[in-house]
Design a protein around this nucleic acid. Structure first.
Lengths: 179, 179
DNA sequence: CTACAATCGGAACGGTGGCCCCGCTTCAAC
DNA sequence: GTTGAAGCGGGGCCACCGTTCCGATTGTAG
């Protein structure tokens, strides 16, 4: 049942493709042609398809790893700090990530397993923050994702470095319990 | 210099194309193939191009008219009510419109003349509301558009009728001057 | 009614991009 | 070294879609 181990060159190419995909997706999101990813990796398109059945699968592989990092980061915060700070810290982290890489906004916009991962991660943090009274109780994870979409799709490549901060300020104030 | 008047059938077809485009864009946004618009209008693709030089031009024609309606509506509110109510009323109106039609979210996301129109309309309302002290002074029109993007791209076709209300509640609270 | 020009329809073109096929190369077990 | 299989490359197929072209059609001026 276990797959036989990959040949050495195959493993190397797989890593190259993943690295090229990380860069390309970060710059241009899902819109980047698969042939360009292959070219950046120094392989042919056929090789990409040997390792990933579809372009979406490659995108999912790249983004899922990134989101897992973010979630691990957030989980670390959660145990140390209070739930409210963990939650808002995660939002800030998302904003910074979105400003640097274009793929997160595609990940949050397109329904699929990646979006579900992010949904789950946000849901856990949101729930704790709500129990602690740091966030209003009437917002759902779905609402939160909708609110973040605009942030992530707008901030990438903006010349204005203060943009993320201002948008987050509005979101944070709006998410706090009403007076 | 004045263009000669259109032939009767040409004028009729132009209206049919516009009506079909309104429906099609509302349902599927810019993603709808131009051939489908032509089919709905009962004309050939060539006829569409006789009246509109490009698909974008057709989209612009459809959306610009809609935004002008919204702006006129907002302007009417502005003179009657106070600036804060006019502003927040316009936001609610946008949310309702976005829930019903999918094209507004494309209009706000894609840079171009349509986006600029909306930008200008929002800017005027926002400025008045800020002068009246109803909205925090440190948000720009660009920020506002970013915040609305998520709302508009999420809300269309959602089964949850209360979604718009909850998202708007967060935005409204966040946009109010900080305590 | 005639004739001309405006208009129409839809087949065809060109570009793009995801994905597959297959002859050749390279690895690694023996 | 030999050899069988895993892996590779990239040309090419196909589907989609915006746009254009042109022969057929239809409105309308005279």
């Amino acid at each position: 049942m276990a797959d036989p181990p990959l040949r050495a060159d195959a493993r190397r190419n797989r890593e190259r493709v993943l690295a090229a995909a990380r860069d390309a997706f970060a710059e241009s999101g899902m819109a980047v042609p698969l042939d360009e990813i292959a070219a950046r990796a120094g392989v042919g398109p056929g090789t990409v398809y040997r390792h990933f059945p579809t372009k979406d699968a490659l995108f999912t592989a790249v983004i899922t790893a990134r989101i897992e990092d973010l979630v691990a980061d957030a989980r670390a915060r959660t145990s140390a700090d209070d739930a409210g700070a963990a939650f808002f810290g995660f939002l800030a982290r998302l904003g910074a990530e979105g400003a640097a890489k274009r793929d997160l906004s595609d990940a949050i916009a397109v329904p699929g397993p990646v979006r579900d991962d992010l949904h789950a991660a946000l849901g856990a943090l949101l729930g704790r923050a709500q129990e602690a009274g740091a966030v209003r109780a009437d917002v759902s994870t779905t609402d939160l994702i909708a609110l973040l979409k605009g942030l992530l799709t707008t901030v990438h490549g903006s010349a204005d470095a203060t943009l993320v901060g201002r948008i987050l300020a509005v979101l944070v104030d709006g998410l706090r319990p009403p007076r």
